[in-house]
Amino acid sequence: MNFSDTAWQIFNTSIEDYHVLDNIETPINNPFPNDSLERILYAKNWIDTVQWHLEDIIRDENIDPVNALQLKRMIDASNQKRTDLVEFIDSWFLDKYKDITPKTDAKINTETPAWAVDRLSILSLKVYHMSLEAHRESASEEHRLNCQKKLDVLLDQKQDLSTSIGQLLTDIENGDIKMKVYKQMKMYNDESLNPILYQKEQK
């Protein structure tokens, strides 16, 4: 099984595990060994899955404003964890390919392996939930057919993205692409970089 297929399988395991209780407060119970890439991938998708449902909840038009603010804080924290974990996955790839010398004409890709994996994780959630809608008995036939068409597109995207990830990793291994990672430098959670936060501290 290639990397993309393995990641997809792990992502779907995470999604299925979450939906046993379907509760954002459910603690993660990662089944994979410590220090394994599989464990990291499961944790990555678990964050994405919880955030998916946080985003659903906060869009309730009748939500209490206090609860909405609390959820917004949770989403911000989740986004930071997501970014940190993506960068950690890229560090894993950097270590994996540390002994590979890129060719003199090696190209630089617009996207690192981990950010491509991030897209695959989100895509697995789209496929899962669109499949639910395509088969929801309480929905109209028109709704199910429209969702099936969207699901077909998502599955096509999954195939293309999986292929692209495989090609990217092969090109890095062969020295045809130079792996270069930039930190995201997110500023909104940093008390020294967000003016709203550091001006508050100075008052």
Rank of each mutant, 00 (worst) to 15 (best):
R39A: 15
A68P: 07
E87V: 03
E38C: 02
I89M: 04
T49A: 00
Q70P: 01
K44I: 09
L71K: 10
I47A: 02
L71E: 07
I57W: 06
D84C: 02
E38I: 00
V86R: 04
D35G: 03
T49K: 00
F88L: 12
V50A: 02
I63Y: 02
H53C: 09
Y42H: 09
N62E: 15
V50I: 15
T49E: 01
L71P: 01
N34G: 12
D60G: 09
W52L: 04
T83V: 15
N45K: 11
I40H: 02
S78H: 11
E55I: 15
A77I: 07
M74D: 13
V86E: 00
D76H: 11
R39I: 01
W46G: 04
I63P: 02
T83Y: 03
I58K: 08
N45S: 12
L41Q: 01
P65W: 11
I63G: 05
V66K: 13
V50W: 01
I63L: 14
N67Y: 10
A43W: 08
E87A: 04
E38R: 01
F88H: 11
D76V: 14
W52P: 01
L41P: 04
S36K: 02
M74A: 14
D64C: 07
L41D: 01
Q80V: 12
L41R: 04
T83Q: 10
L37K: 01
L37W: 01
Y42K: 07
R39T: 08
H53T: 10
